[in-house]
C-alpha cells in the first residue's frame, strides 16, 4: 500500500497525461478531426492509415529520416566513445577538455541552430571565410545546398557531450585491475582497449545506441529551425526538401494543414517503427552485449 501511495503522483499523472491522451490520440487517428471544430467530426475508419501507406511525402520523409539516422547514430557513437577514451587518459586539463565537449550538449536547440547558421553563413560565417583563403571565390550556401550535412553536424556536435558522459561513467565502472592485469601480461594499449575495455562497455554502447536511434527518428525542431531564412523562425516554417523528415511531415500535417486525425495516424506508425527497431535491437543485443561483470 505504501508503494502505491508513494508512486501515486506519477501514476495519476501517467493516467491523466499519458494513458488517456494516448487512447484519445489512437481514437483520433480514426477520425477527420481538424482541431478547429467538433461540428464536422466524423469517424473515417482505417482511411488515415491507408492514406499514410500511400503518402509519397511520408515515404520520402521516412527515407530521409532513416538516412539521417544511419549517418548520425554510428558517427555519433564512435565520436562519443573516442571523446570519452581521450579525456579518460591521464592528461593535463582533462576537466577543461571534458567541459568543452560537454558544453554543446547543454546549449538549447534554438541557440545551437543560430550558432551553426552563423558559423556556416556564406556572408558572415567562419567556414566560408576560412575556405575562401584556400579556394578563392568559394561560395557554398551550406543551408541551401547541403542542409542535411549541416544538420548532421549540428546534431552530432550537440549530442556528443551527453553520450561521452555516459561512456565515462561506464569506463569508470571498469575495475582498473582488469586493465593492469592485461598490461602486465604484455598487452598493448590498443589491445587493452579492444579486448578489455570495449567488451565491458557494450552495455553502455547499447544504451547510447538505443537512445540515439529514438532521438534521431524523432528529429523535428532542428530541421525546422535550420531553414535558410535569417529573419526568424515561426511554428509554420517548412524546411528545405532535403531536411524534410518524418516527424516534420507529421507536424506539418497536424499544425499547418489541421489534419489532426491523419497526423496522429502518421505518428502511430512511427511509434510502431520505433518499437519494432527497439525490440529488434534488444533481440540482437544478446549476441554482442556483454553483461558478465557487475562493476
Amino acid at each position: 500500500m505504501t508503494f502505491y501511495l508513494l508512486i501515486s503522483p506519477w501514476l495519476l499523472g501517467f493516467v491523466l497525461l499519458s494513458a488517456i491522451p494516448l487512447v484519445g490520440a489512437f481514437v483520433m487517428s480514426f477520425t477527420n478531426y481538424d482541431g478547429l471544430n467538433l461540428d464536422y467530426l466524423r469517424f473515417v475508419g482505417p482511411d488515415n492509415y491507408a492514406r499514410a501507406l500511400g503518402d509519397a511525402d511520408a515515404q520520402y520523409a521516412l527515407g530521409r529520416t532513416l538516412l539521417l539516422m544511419l549517418v548520425v547514430v554510428p558517427v555519433g557513437l564512435v565520436l562519443q566513445l573516442a571523446l570519452a577514451l581521450m579525456v579518460n587518459q591521464p592528461i593535463r586539463f582533462s576537466n577543461a577538455f571534458r567541459t568543452i565537449f560537454y558544453l554543446p550538449y547543454v546549449i538549447p536547440v534554438v541557440a545551437g541552430v543560430w550558432i551553426w547558421k552563423i558559423f556556416v553563413d556564406p556572408s558572415g560565417g567562419l567556414v566560408n571565410a576560412a575556405l575562401g583563403v584556400v579556394l578563392p571565390d568559394f561560395n557554398v550556401r551550406w543551408l541551401v545546398e547541403y542542409p542535411t550535412f549541416v544538420l548532421a553536424l549540428l546534431t552530432i556536435w550537440g549530442a556528443a557531450g551527453g553520450g561521452m558522459v555516459v561512456f565515462l561513467a561506464g569506463l569508470q565502472g571498469i575495475p582498473a585491475e582488469y586493465r593492469e592485469a592485461a598490461m602486465i601480461d604484455g598487452a598493448s594499449r590498443t589491445q587493452v582497449t579492444r579486448f578489455i575495455t570495449l567488451p565491458l562497455l557494450t552495455p553502455v554502447i547499447f544504451f547510447n545506441l538505443v537512445t540515439g536511434i529514438i532521438v534521431a527518428l524523432q528529429i523535428l525542431v532542428q530541421p525546422m529551425l535550420l531553414s535558410p531564412g535569417i529573419l526568424g523562425l515561426n511554428p509554420g516554417t517548412v524546411p528545405p526538401r532535403d531536411n524534410y523528415f518524418y516527424v516534420v511531415h507529421a507536424y506539418i500535417e497536424i499544425f499547418t494543414k489541421q489534419l489532426f486525425g491523419y497526423g496522429s495516424a502518421l505518428l502511430w506508425l512511427l511509434f510502431a517503427v520505433v518499437l519494432g527497431l527497439t525490440v529488434l535491437l534488444f533481440k540482437t543485443s544478446r549476441r554482442w552485449v556483454f553483461y558478465g561483470v557487475e562493476p
Binding site: 482541431g35 515561426n234 511554428p235 509554420g236 499544425f255 499547418t256 489541421q258
Partner: peptide
Amino acid sequence: SNLTTLYAMWA
C-alpha cells in the same frame, strides 16, 4: 500574426 499559431489557438 502567423498561420500556424492562429490554427493552434483555434485548436
